[in-house]
């Protein structure tokens, strides 16, 4: 069953200019995305910087208000609800940021940071019980109870991310957005956090939207993978399907660009031509056509739909059928 379903969600940021601010254009960060995440599923969202993947994550949690479209969470549309009515939604959803350092208040102790969600939602009114719960959470993520009174600057990057994960788990959420949770960590610590996320996901049957540009990490943790380019999803498939059989030309280039730690497989990979176009004025029709090697005249005319080519495998490309 779908836990969260986004239908044609758009997020356009207005650009102001002039002395008397006037809207002169829009940054189309998310431009018509339909995506659903099932219960107990990790959906990996891959895209290059500026493609709108972080914006999509924030819109899904209503940290940003969508410009258009609807978001169904447990069957209820939360896209247009007022912020005051979102308390029960926020209780069931959480976010983990890339930079664990700046997502912890430097002047709050670890205990205070982790119990904030409990305080906000008026759970465990009894102080001793609340502390007990916080300690339980800290232990769950591999920290110790004596860390309760310490401050963030006393911890290493990996430990800070563990604290953030503990805070995210405090309310037993159903849906978690993890925005590049390991990108800022040391290489030798990344695996610890990836494994922790994987274990917690399995234990609590969490649904996770795992946003990252680290393709190998996404491959490791995700059940399904979506590839995003300039505000749109260009390909969506199961993890093993997309890595074995990428169909969109962009996906192909992207996946083959990942450097493999094996000096004996140095392939001459095709380079992507040109630069990523601006999301203010993206190319008409297929957004990838100016950089695509299989671009046909039709690609410059007609906007492709995200169509199903196999069970669970969707591609937004007109020329795909020709490639067979």
């Amino acid at each position: 069953m779908d836990l969260i379903e986004m239908r044609d969600v758009k997020k356009h940021f207005p650009i102001y200019s002039g002395i008397l601010p006037k809207v002169v254009g829009h940054i189309k960060a998310v431009d018509g995305i339909s995506l659903s995440i099932e219960q107990n599923e990790v959906l990996g969202l891959i895209g290059e910087s500026g493609c709108g993947k972080t914006t999509l994550g924030k819109v899904a949690l209503r940290l940003l208000d969508p410009s258009e479209g609807s978001i169904f969470f447990e069957g209820i549309d939360i896209a247009k609800k007022k912020h005051d009515d979102l308390l029960s939604f926020k209780k069931k959803t959480q976010i983990i940021f890339q930079d664990a350092h700046s997502s912890l208040d430097p002047r709050s102790s670890i205990g205070l940071s982790v119990e904030e969600p409990l305080r906000t939602h008026k759970m465990f009114q009894d102080r001793a019980k609340r502390k007990e719960r916080v300690v339980e959470l800290l232990e769950e993520v591999g920290l110790e109870s004596e860390h309760y009174d310490r401050y963030p600057h006393e911890f290493s990057g990996g430990q800070k991310q563990r604290i953030c994960i503990a805070r995210a788990l405090a309310l037993d959420p159903k849906f978690v957005v993890a925005d590049e949770p390991v990108s800022s960590l040391d290489v030798s610590v990344r695996a610890q956090i990836l494994n922790l996320l994987k274990d917690l996901q399995a234990k609590y049957h969490l649904s996770i939207l795992y946003i990252s540009h680290d393709i190998s990490g996404v491959k490791y943790i995700s059940n399904r993978v979506a590839i995003m380019y300039l505000g749109k999803i260009v390909e969506l498939a199961d993890q093993n399907e997309i890595f074995k059989n990428p169909c969109h030309p962009y996906t192909k280039v992207l996946l083959s660009s990942v450097p493999v730690p094996d000096p004996e497989t140095r392939e001459e990979v095709k380079l992507l031509k040109g630069e990523v176009p601006s999301p203010i004025d993206p190319p008409k029709a297929c957004r990838f056509h100016p950089r695509c090697d299989c671009c046909t005249p039709e690609c410059k005319e007609r906007e492709p739909e995200l169509r199903r080519i196999k069970k669970g495998h969707f591609v937004r490309c007109l020329s795909f059928k020709d490639l067979g």
């Binding site: 959803t93 976010i95 997502s103 208040d105 906000t120």
Partner: peptide, 25 residues
């Protein structure tokens, strides 16, 4: 700072965000 956003994600209201995070910092 992301800890303000993290607080918003939890559902903490503006008054408490100012009280717990903004003022202290």
């Amino acid at each position: 700072m992301e800890y303000i956003e993290a607080s918003e994600a939890i559902g903490t209201n503006s008054f408490n965000i100012i009280r717990y995070h903004v003022f202290k910092n």
